[in-house]
């Protein structure tokens, strides 16, 4: 086996890969989140932004391919790690009382899968257009896809809002452990820097950032054009 294959199969190599893929996915998530704030700039601004991204196909497809690859690697490695961890304790304790670890940390596999399911929903909703097909592929006055209205109609629906809220809670839980873990897994720990608190900070930042535009829609601050 090549050194790289051995590396990815080693416990620490797999952790490195989990950390790096997770970190890159987070960077995307941050940029993605920031983009949503253009909702506050109105239909024209948001659709211009969406149109720009949609037509930047030299970047769009490589980014999509990259995101898919990162997600697949992250999940495949996670499945491998979980399997090894289960095998490492074939007989479980009758009584087991953890003290230091967080419930979210121990639920990484669950939150990870749930976030993945949420992503699938999200892609079906906004990329493929299967969830609210009626609002998909409508055009704005300038002939661009009306992403703005699609966004507003989506979150005016409390059920959809609820799904996204749940998705963001799960993502925040996942990152609460994950974001601190990168630093530890890549060895970036130093007593001067409180890396164990970074996870919470990143989760809160992302959760709040993602939930502001949808909430603004739900409470009526962001409205359909002309409404």
């Amino acid at each position: 086996m090549s050194w790289f294959g051995r590396y990815l199969r080693s416990s620490i190599g797999a952790k490195h890969a989990m950390a790096v893929t997770g970190l890159l996915l987070l960077l995307f998530a941050i940029v993605h989140m920031l983009g949503h704030f253009q909702m506050f700039g109105g239909q024209d601004m948001y659709n211009k932004y969406a149109h720009f991204l949609q037509n930047l196909w030299e970047v769009k497809w490589p980014v999509r391919a990259g995101l898919i690859a990162l997600t697949v690697i992250h999940i495949v490695l996670a499945i491998g790690l979980v399997a090894k961890n289960r095998a490492a304790r074939p007989v479980s304790y009758a009584v087991y009382r953890p003290v230091m670890s967080s419930a979210t940390g121990r639920a990484m596999a669950f939150t990870g899968l749930a976030v993945f399911a949420f992503l699938a929903f999200h892609i079906l909703h906004f990329t493929v257009g299967m969830v609210q097909a009626d609002y998909f592929h409508t055009l704005d006055p300038k002939g661009r896809y009306d992403a703005y209205s699609m966004f507003v109609r989506g979150f005016q629906n409390p059920a959809i809002y609820g799904v996204y809220l749940a998705g963001m809670v799960l993502l925040a839980m996942h990152l609460g452990h994950g974001a601190s873990s990168w630093f530890q897994s890549l060895g970036w720990r130093h007593p001067k820097y409180p890396i164990d608190r970074i996870g919470t900070a990143v989760s809160v930042f992302l959760f709040v950032g993602y939930m502001i535009p949808p909430t603004a829609v739900l409470v009526g601050i962001i409205k359909l054009p002309g409404a």
């Binding site: 620490i12 952790k15 490492a88 670890s101």
Partner: peptide, 22 residues
């Protein structure tokens, strides 16, 4: 040493730090 640790069938570290507490 990491190879030997893996070969022995120990699990992977998930940064829970239960070890540190124990």
């Amino acid at each position: 040493m990491v190879s030997a640790m893996d070969a022995a069938g120990f699990g992977n570290c998930s940064n829970h730090y239960e070890c540190e507490a124990a």
